[in-house]
Design a protein around this nucleic acid. Sequence first.
DNA 1: CTTGACGTGAGGTACGTAACTCACTAAATC
DNA 2: GATTTAGTGAGTTACGTACCTCACGTCAAG
Lengths: 344, 344
Amino acid sequence: MTRPTVRDIAREAGVSLATVDRVLNSRPRVRENSIRLVQDAVEKLGYVRDVSAANLAKRKEYRFAFIIPDSRSKFVETILAALNEVKQVPGPDRISVDTILAPADDANATARILTGLDVQRFDGVAIMCPETPQVRDAVIRLKQAGLAVVALVSDLPSSRRDHFVGVDNKAAGRTAGALMGRFLCGKQGKVLVVSGSLLSRDSIERRFGFDGILAERFPSLVVLPTVESRNDNYRLISIVKQVMTAHRDILGIYALGSGNSAILDALRATGRIRSCTLIMHELTEITRAALEADEVDVVIMQNVGHLVRSSIRVLRAYSDNTPIVDSQEKIRIEIVTKENLVEL
Amino acid sequence: MTRPTVRDIAREAGVSLATVDRVLNSRPRVRENSIRLVQDAVEKLGYVRDVSAANLAKRKEYRFAFIIPDSRSKFVETILAALNEVKQVPGPDRISVDTILAPADDANATARILTGLDVQRFDGVAIMCPETPQVRDAVIRLKQAGLAVVALVSDLPSSRRDHFVGVDNKAAGRTAGALMGRFLCGKQGKVLVVSGSLLSRDSIERRFGFDGILAERFPSLVVLPTVESRNDNYRLISIVKQVMTAHRDILGIYALGSGNSAILDALRATGRIRSCTLIMHELTEITRAALEADEVDVVIMQNVGHLVRSSIRVLRAYSDNTPIVDSQEKIRIEIVTKENLVEL
DNA sequence: CTTGACGTGAGGTACGTAACTCACTAAATC
DNA sequence: GATTTAGTGAGTTACGTACCTCACGTCAAG
């Protein structure tokens, strides 16, 4: 009834413990035939390696680094908070997580940090940054050094990252578009899209999804050219004010990412808040308060706690070649309204 | 830099390993003063027990039982599938999960199963069933026997369950109501609510939340008396057909739980599908297909994988008195549209 | 003074696995 | 024929913790 151990395998296969160990850890110097004997015994007895005992014996420590942009963005703050929470709680497994802040808006600096990373010190890296050729090269180097690499929030598809932990941003944009269309009830008018920076892949994909569904299903809505904040909130406030004054028939605003606070300020200043349907991304203290105040209609989010924990599970799985439970690691596009907002 | 062990504590406190062990496991025969010495050393060195090593030494196995209603409901099927998935993947911890099917619609039989449960064989139980006095008494017995008990999907508040794993159903109802109201764009008309059984607490709470928000924010919509399926799909189809014919001004339908398939069939038969705004609960093969076919507007769901994994984590935490990460265990009310539907 | 309960230390074994050494055989190579 | 090498078994130590036994000292009640 109790789980079989290596000893049972050895007995069943008729080989010694050492041979079982050699096979299980794919060490050399084992005859093909013995390998098969052991494998058959494993199969027959349903042996599964006791990971915690193995890690204990190996004194294995997983050391992971999270490369996070050093921006004052509220979304990044929630990610850092989630990372801190993970660090507080001593998991059953010996995992250490280092958070490394990389200058935001400077992909080269990020690439340099990646290149300078001591590959001896880490088993895996989670990277949140836009993809550039330099970043791609740095990731390839990390992979070659044997580290597990996951892309966080924004994908790095052309690099050899092992995994992407984040939402399907095109689908997120489509979701935002569908809700915008439904909420506007077939009215004729304009929709404004506001972006942090159109350089980052996630913004582009969201925009693409949003435009697509509006064109398909809500042709009565006209999407205005995207307003870009370039991470300058003062600039953003004035541009949004200007646009809102110029276009009195703007019915809805879709905020692709950063700049939520500035957009809200601009709308409050122009008195257009609550008369516009507002859809924003990421649940932060700003958007939470705006939801509660009925200023924002919907927030599209990804659960940062899940993001961080999933990254760690995936990094661990890659660094010791164990399978991944896809359904657990799939990051959902969550739709948050005032009603299903979770407290705290 | 490496984690302190019991040895370090013993050295720091100036006592023997045995004494440290006695203190850490709160065994008798230790002087007050020695207890304090050890506790101070633990604090100073930041010692945290290595749970996997401890479990290894204890040959501890967590044995959990899941009591699940034996209905042909698609939602229950997805829960069983999630349970099976968990059983397949051998976690790092030695956890065994038994699924026990209890007759649906027979709370007494469920109570009898709980009463008959061998308290020696299990460390914890997750229970999905409506609350009755018999169930409450059975839960109290389990608690007294030292088992951890969580309520799954539907809460058992008056029993002494340790934890509830599921969504806030009143908030789920409010969410459904708010979406229904927004999607109906201020039109005047009727809304139909269909329930599996109004006995179960989750249905009542959803209905309550739904009615509340419609009354508050969408007074132009009239909610018809609830149609109850009593888990009889043929009956449900004919009632829904009848109601739909009698009331030509039904604009929306809110399905509180079971019977989704019958409702869809009835609407298809009466040709009212797609002309009604339809909001249903739980993502199953039925509702998924209906979402993809644009027959359902929104599905409100709880992630069953999360539900099951969270239950297990919580049961484990309660059975060895370790803290719970609230943010990880909070089950979210997920809003699913065709656009943010995840594949598979 | 004896008895016994209490408090403590020393030391051991065990859990399941990893990783190592040493010894040995059989076959291949020199 | 001597040397190497691949393949194997036997055995040991270690990881961090639990839990056990035994011995010993202290102190108070009988």
